[in-house]
Nucleic acid binder design. Structure first.
Length: 509
DNA sequence: CTTAGGG
DNA sequence: CCCTAAG
């Protein structure tokens, strides 16, 4: 999105702009559900790919096949020239597009491009770093160009600076002139390719420089180069953006895999792998996980927010911080961590659990599965709030109505299945029994890890009411009894059970 | 499909 | 958590 907008703004020829703008908007909206959009787009892409037309080619090229095309159809020089032209005009560099876009073809190409971008974004979308991918892609092209073109040294220097800046700055860099330049340069490339005829030759100075800068070393071209450049360049970006990248990689990995499988070959593969590795290495940084569910919002917001969040982190949003701001690495750890951290989060606060982690988690999970065939889904700690919800749900709906409870209380948390609820309940019961038997003393000892007494009490009560195995004894519908018998150990003054839960449900069936 | 039960 | 059997 951002890029697109940028382009529009940048475009010198505003006449065309409106068109593009509209188109873009539509697309975006239509795509609105970034994730879902994938299918259609994919189809399109394929279609495009199949077709030899330059326009399509351009698009494709952007995504994956860029190299081939370059080799076959284009003179890099031309491209670079065009690109540069665009760049020259303004740092935005999108101009090239604008010029190109005048034609329908151009538009198409653009759309395709955009779509692709969006798709890419989709991946990221979850995480909200749309730009990262693009940058990534662009970089590739970039590298290629660099290789092919012979940039003049001086140019290089110029661009070099800018490029470096952009990288360093990370995503935000785009905003900066340098960043903009880079992006623009990259973006235009595809078009320029298509259009190379059009622009034919403008001067490339700047571009070359940039490209050069980045990948001065690469002698050869081709996949190797591709990878090469990638490695070289990305690190920086990753560092800066790694959040986004990582997030991206993690997010939607499943979808990504599917979609990517179609076209993306090396591009995505590398990225993911790369990302993963990096993520592993870079546990250091915190990656905020997107909390908001709506995808659109996400993509846009994330980007900006990420940093802010990082900054804010220290502050005290307990509940939120816990959930929302989890690094990938942290997340992993967290799965294995003792409950403490999680369980103690303030109960009420978590608006809940799920939003934040769910996406990232799912992604990560998917990722892992895909990678390792791990069957076991990584454990997700039950938070106190969750437990409470569960208990409430059970009290309300009765034991055994896991799906109901799931639906009502845990609808937000995708990762909790009815079975999970049941299992959790089972464990709670066990715990409650244990406690009862052992008495308070132990509770105190373990207190830190254990559930709050209130919860325990409730669990116990429920347990009495319905013994886990559905074979509930219809026994006590009434509260009074329940409270009295076993619970002595604790001081609970008032019978908790009564108020809320009706036992009735259970009996009925 | 959902639940129970066991691993 | 996962897997399987049973309703």
């Amino acid at each position: 999105m951002r890029i697109k907008l940028k382009r529009e703004h940048n475009m010198d020829r505003e006449e065309h702009l409106p068109k593009l703008a509209n188109m873009k908007c539509q697309r975006v909206k239509a795509g609105g559900s970034f994730v879902p959009s994938g299918q259609d787009e994919v189809v399109e892409d394929e279609h495009l790919l199949s077709e030899p037309k330059s326009d399509h080619v351009a698009v494709d090229g952007v995504l994956c096949y860029h190299e081939e095309y370059l080799g076959k159809h284009y003179d890099i020089e031309n491209l670079s020239c065009e690109l540069q032209c665009g760049l020259k005009r303004d740092t935005g560099g999108l101009d090239s597009y604008t010029t190109l876009e005048g034609d329908d073809l151009k538009l198409d190409a653009l759309d395709g491009l955009l779509d692709d971008v969006e798709e890419v974004d989709d991946f990221d979308a979850a995480n909200g770093l749309s730009s990262a991918c693009e940058d990534y892609l662009l970089d590739f092209e970039y590298a290629e160009k660099a290789q092919e073109n012979d940039p003049s040294p001086r140019e290089r220097s110029l661009l070099g600076n800018s490029s470096s800046e952009s990288q360093s700055s990370g995503l935000s860099a785009s905003s900066t002139g340098a960043g903009g330049l880079l992006e623009s340069s990259r973006m235009p490339i595809p078009k320029s390719e298509c259009k190379k005829d059009y622009l034919g030759k403008t001067v490339i100075c700047e571009l070359h420089g940039t490209s050069r800068n980045k990948c001065p070393c690469q002698p050869t071209i081709g996949d190797n180069i591709y990878g090469y450049s990638l490695d070289i360049q990305n690190p920086d970006e990753f560092d800066n953006d790694d959040n986004s990248l990582v997030g991206v990689a993690s997010s939607d990995s499943a979808e990504a895999c599917q979609i990517s499988a179609l076209r993306e070959k090396r591009l995505r593969k590398r990225t993911q792998r790369y990302i993963e590795e990096f993520s592993g290495l870079k546990s250091k940084e915190n990656i905020p996980i997107a909390t908001s569910k709506n995808k659109c919002g996400r993509s846009d917001n994330k980007f900006h927010h990420l940093r802010h969040r990082a900054l804010r982190k220290g502050q005290g949003e307990k509940s939120i911080s816990e959930t929302s701001e989890v690094t990938l690495s942290q997340l992993r750890l967290r799965w294995r961590l003792p409950k403490k951290e999680v369980s103690f989060s303030p109960v009420g606060l978590e608006s809940d659990e799920e939003p934040f982690v769910s996406d990232s988690e799912d992604d990560s999970m998917a990722k892992r599965r895909s990678r390792k065939h791990d069957r076991r889904k990584h454990q997700r700690m039950w938070t106190l709030s969750e437990v409470i919800k569960l208990v409430d749900g059970i009290s309300e709906y009765g034991v055994g109505r896991w799906t109901e409870i799931k639906r009502v209380l845990f609808s937000s948390s995708a990762y909790r299945t009815p079975i999970d609820l049941r299992d959790k309940w089972r464990n709670l019961l066990r715990a409650s029994y244990a406690k009862v038997n052992k008495k308070v003393a132990e509770q105190k000892q373990n207190a830190s890890r254990l559930l709050p007494t209130s919860v325990l009490r409730r669990v116990r009560e429920l347990a009495k009411i319905h013994p886990y195995p559905s074979g509930h004894s219809s026994k006590k519908s009434c509260v009074g009894e329940v409270a009295s018998p076993a619970v002595p150990t604790q001081d609970k003054g008032a019978p908790i059970c009564l108020g809320r839960r009706n036992v009735s449900r259970k009996n009925s069936p």
